[in-house]
């Protein structure tokens, strides 16, 4: 009686190695474009500051609000420049990029028809999703760090290595400022888990990559709009976008951390829910693409 079940060399846990998936994605134009834009954005911002008209410094009427503070101080040093680049991209650009990495990953394989051949190798379905998830996460992190890294580099070369300033709280010394900046990056990464979860779930549910990416971004925007309606009261607190601005708490001294913790809880729960649903659905569904 033969107990050799699989082909020689086949091991379920060895299928679709992470580096193989990294390479599958790396050669794609959209991956390269998304990552490239992360590098390009700080350059554009820098050029805007250099060549834009210098009527900044006018009171824009929001009475020293936190955003104008971040914008006004953007050219005061590398840390502030990186902070500004993060602030302008956190609301939309990063959302789109993360939605792209997570929403495209399964749906595009389905639309190419290559998904069924991966499953017939067979790559166990849970493993396929797990590897796709990890690699999409790695690319998202890479995008985030490319953005911050480039901004930090350009900002430091052009504006110097100076303390991180904000108009109300004390200046933060460079070393601690860098730690705070990394903290902000970490928090943004955590809040983006919601987009990641949503896009990934949609990616599993649909064969159209564009639908998954666009759907996730649309739902995110919808949540942001609902979040603007103050009449909703406490109901807003369950919106996935309610705590997206909490990273500003990192700029106070000492750090206001409770909103960060609440935002992280919200994001982690949403991401777990969405990913859980994605795994549940994908490991049971008939692949018809």
């Amino acid at each position: 009686m033969s107990t050799v079940e699989a082909a020689v060399g086949y091991k379920a846990s060895g299928t679709l190695p992470i580096w193989a998936e990294v390479r599958r994605q790396a050669s794609r134009r959209r991956t390269q474009m998304a990552l490239g834009f992360m590098v390009l954005l700080p350059v554009i911002v820098w050029a805007a500051f250099e060549f834009g008209n210098s009527s900044r410094g006018d009171d824009d009427g929001d009475g020293g609000g936190s955003f104008s503070s971040i914008a006004d101080l953007a050219t005061s040093g590398g840390l502030n420049f990186a902070l500004f680049c993060l602030a302008v991209s956190a609301g939309f650009l990063l959302v789109v990029v993360v939605a792209l990495f997570f929403g495209d990953t399964v749906a595009s394989e389905a639309s190419w028809g290559s998904l069924r051949y991966l499953l017939a190798i067979p790559v166990p379905r849970a493993r396929l999703l797990g590897v796709k998830l990890i690699v999409a996460g790695l690319y998202s992190l890479l995008a985030l760090f490319l953005l911050v890294g480039t901004a930090l580099l350009i900002g430091t070369v052009r504006y110097g290595w100076s303390p991180m300033g904000s108009t109300i709280a004390a200046e933060i010394p460079p070393a601690e400022g860098l730690a705070r900046l990394l903290g902000i990056v970490a928090y943004l990464a955590v809040t983006l888990l919601v987009v990641a979860g949503l896009a990934f779930l949609l990616s599993v549910l649909t064969d159209a990559a564009l639908g998954a990416v666009g759907g996730a971004v649309m739902l995110w925007i919808l949540s942001s709009i609902l979040n603007q309606i103050e009449a909703l009261g406490d109901l807003r607190k369950v919106l996935p976008t309610y705590y997206t601005e909490a990273w500003r708490g990192m700029l106070s001294t000492p750090i206001q951390s409770d909103e960060l913790a609440k935002g992280a809880i919200s994001a982690v729960i949403y991401a777990t829910l969405f990913w859980g649903l994605a795994f549940y659905r994908f490991t049971r569904k008939d692949v018809t693409s």
Binding site: E5, A7, A12, W112, G113, L119, A120, I121, P122, R125
Partner: peptide, 26 residues
């Protein structure tokens, strides 16, 4: 002789082409 269910390792001994090719276009 091995029962075939989705993802069963025995699939590794089967090569297949079903419903047309599926390739990474890039």
């Amino acid at each position: 002789g091995h029962r075939l269910v989705p993802g069963a390792p025995i699939l590794s001994r089967v090569g297949s082409l079903v419903e047309g090719p599926g390739f990474l276009p890039h």
